[in-house]
Design a protein around this nucleic acid. Structure first.
Length: 608
RNA sequence: GCCUCAGUGGCUCAGCCGGUAGAGCGAUGCCUUGGUAAGGCAUAGGUCGGGGGUUCGAAUCCCCCCUGAGGCUCCA
């Protein structure tokens, strides 16, 4: 419910003509005048119908609160549809407005309700003091009868084809133990901030954008580079496995039934917007665009399985304020999202197995330890027990298995991979889900081998999870490992891979020529040409987490050997440049490369 | 959204039982041309998150709002 509260010197209105939904009224209510009134312009919304008692109660409290602050004499409830783009039915609105009036009268207030469903003229004089114009959004809790009836899930630890009780299982991995504790609600909190938040700002990767909504970030060049490299990585990963990249719009029309029903599964967590004639939602995943393409594509059984891929820059989820944190939980985030059309459940299970391998691969490539949770419905487990045990076993270590007594989402089987952060809490990253609802809902069909139209099964898969969470996981890991190795990114993701420090000004030309050689080897290099001491420059390079720092002075001018500081091992080694080229090439392997998005010379840089 | 805590130069923070805003880092300028984690001196920079209130006087006390952190809950 939306309220606009105006403390007025006076208000008068006059009914003009009826609309189709007009209520019958006495003559005296056709024209009225009130003085020193708190006028409550009210729009009753669709979601209010779920719990009318509560919305009336909450609205009453809010009105009483304002009333007592402004010192009005009476309350005028004025139906005003234009405050909302998702109105309730007229009957529900009339009932709720009437209930508001009666409840307020019961509290001893003088209340009048302006007729509903009439075209009216009105004149209002607003007092203009600070509290004289207020708007309120009255929320209702979703009625939680579903929750109450839910049987709890059963949890097991699954390893080498056998099930164990999570409470008594002997954990070799402390990460898995932490994940299980979290899932079963046994995790005690430390009350600290996850370290990645500070690091992402200190290292000029990303920051909160105060001019946007909560949970939307600005990305500086270094952070942008890492995002792009990770995006390139996932793109290569999925296209090599046959997925076809597409790009789809970020907003969808809620008048489309399939979209509305799918969107409603997400409830309040959507950004809604509208134009004059349309109600729109911002996508919270790529599903909408992907399904829309697939339902318009003619598919036959020979095409399946078939995968399309999109990197959602951005997906939007209106997470609750207290849930939004650093890179871990955002309202605008970037998610690689692949949808695979499978002929039937059996084929989807084969694909699911392949995608487990792909997700596990990302953990290895990014050097992040993932613990896995497999979640299945009881029915699915019963029918496919052998397969579930085998698939989970592909992880190569114990996984947590959740068995849901009833299907309550669109999936019957899913696997989630989580990294564990510095504070021992999971960051959910890759995910695979077998979806048995969306094919039908979005009218996706394919021609079977006997020329009958069939509905496919769809797998959702994010091979890395959101890009922001991947970066968050990498940063958390640096904090966890900082006692063992100096914090740094993998070399292929390091914004500066090699930094050259000329000792004095006369070495600058040499340093710049050397830099060009690294550049042409596709290595991101920069030169610290600032008028600072070597000690200071070394310190700055350490702060920038540069993997290789080269000091060049008089000796290097006359020799092939360069003094190289290696961050990872803390060694200082003399080597020639070809040796270093090889070393970096080996370390960055087949990972994507992009050039340095910053000035080559440190003296030309700005601080963000 | 609810509960708890916080917001002071670009950054990290001190000042907070009311009485003219401080430091370090960074920035700028000058000196120093230096071989491995902060060279020296100087200068600039703040409506103390915003609004309202109490007071002769508010960074400091009170109220509302905004932003951030933690928890609850939910997720990629």
């Amino acid at each position: 419910m939306r309220l606009l509260l105006i403390h007025s010197d006076y208000i008068n209105y006059k009914t003009k003509s009826k609309t189709k939904i007009a209520e019958d009224i006495e003559d005296k209510k056709k024209q009225m005048h009130f003085e020193n009134s708190l006028v409550v312009f009210t729009a009753v919304e669709e979601k209010d119908e779920e719990n009318p008692e509560e919305v009336v109660e909450n609205a009453k409290k809010e009105i009483i609160k304002v009333f007592s602050q402004v010192g009005a004499d009476n309350i005028v409830i004025y139906p005003y549809a234009h405050l909302s783009s998702s109105l309730s039915s007229p009957d529900a609105a009339k009932n709720i407005l009437q209930a508001m009036k009666e409840n307020l009268i019961a509290e001893g207030f003088e209340v009048e309700r302006v007729p509903f469903g009439w075209y009216k003229s009105f004149e209002i004089s607003c007092k203009g003091h600070p509290l004289s114009e207020l708007s309120r959004n009255i929320q209702v809790e979703k009625v939680k009868h579903e929750k109450l009836e839910d049987e709890p899930s059963k949890f097991h630890i699954l390893t080498e084809g056998k099930l164990y009780d999570p409470k008594t299982f002997k954990y070799e991995s402390s990460d898995l133990k932490k994940l299980v504790d979290y899932e079963l609600g046994n995790l005690e909190s430390t009350g600290e901030e996850p370290p990645h938040v500070k690091i992402m700002r200190e290292k000029d990767l990303a920051d909160y954008e105060p001019a946007a909504d909560v949970g939307h970030l600005r990305w500086y060049p270094k952070g942008r580079l890492i995002r792009d490299l990770l995006a390139d990585y996932v793109y290569n990963l999925v296209t090599e496995r046959g997925a076809m990249p597409v790009e789809t719009p970020i907003m969808y029309d809620l008048d489309n039934d399939a979209i509305r029903v799918h969107a409603e599964k997400f409830g309040e967590r959507q950004y809604r917007m509208g134009t004059k004639n349309k109600k729109l939602m911002l996508r919270y995943a790529c599903c909408f665009g992907a399904f829309s393409i697939l339902s318009d594509t003619f598919l036959t059984w020979k095409n399946l399985p078939l995968a399309i891929y999109e990197l959602s820059t951005y997906s939007f989820r209106l997470e609750k304020r207290g849930e939004v944190v650093g890179l871990k939980r955002l309202r605008g985030f970037t998610m690689p999202d692949m949808h695979t059309i499978c002929a039937d459940v059996k084929q989807s299970m084969q694909e699911f197995d392949n995608q487990i391998d792909m997700c596990a691969q990302t953990g290895e490539d990014l050097n992040i330890n993932y613990e896995a949770i497999m979640r299945v419905t009881a029915d699915f487990m019963e029918e496919n027990k052998e397969w579930v045990l085998q698939s989970a076993d592909k992880i190569g270590k114990p996984v947590l298995l959740e068995i849901l007594p009833k299907r309550k989402h669109y999936w019957i089987c899913k696997m989630d991979f989580a990294a564990i952060d510095y504070l021992g809490r999971p960051i959910e990253n890759p995910t695979i889900q077998i979806d048995v609802e969306s094919g039908e809902r979005f009218s996706i069909t394919y021609m079977g081998s006997d020329e009958v139209e069939l509905t496919p099964i769809i797998i959702h898969c994010s091979p890395t999870g959101s890009i922001e969470r991947v970066i968050g996981s990498l940063l958390e890991k640096t904090a966890i490992k900082s006692s063992e190795i100096p914090p740094m990114f993998p070399v292929w993701l390091s914004p500066t891979q090699v930094r050259i420090l000329p000792i004095a000004e006369r070495h600058l030309d040499f340093a710049l020529r050397l830099a060009q050689e690294f550049k042409s080897e596709k290595i991101r290099v920069d030169v610290d040409d600032r008028q600072e001491t070597v000690g200071k420059k070394i310190r700055t390079a350490a702060g920038d987490w540069v993997p290789y720092v080269l000091v060049v002075g008089d000796k290097e001018l006359v020799s092939d050997q360069i003094m190289v500081n290696i961050r990872k091992t803390q060694e200082k080694l003399l080597m020639d440049k070809e040796t270093l080229f090889d070393r970096i090439r080996k370390e960055t392997n087949d990972m994507p490369f992009r050039g340095l998005p910053l000035p080559l010379r440190l003296s030309g840089r700005v601080q963000f």
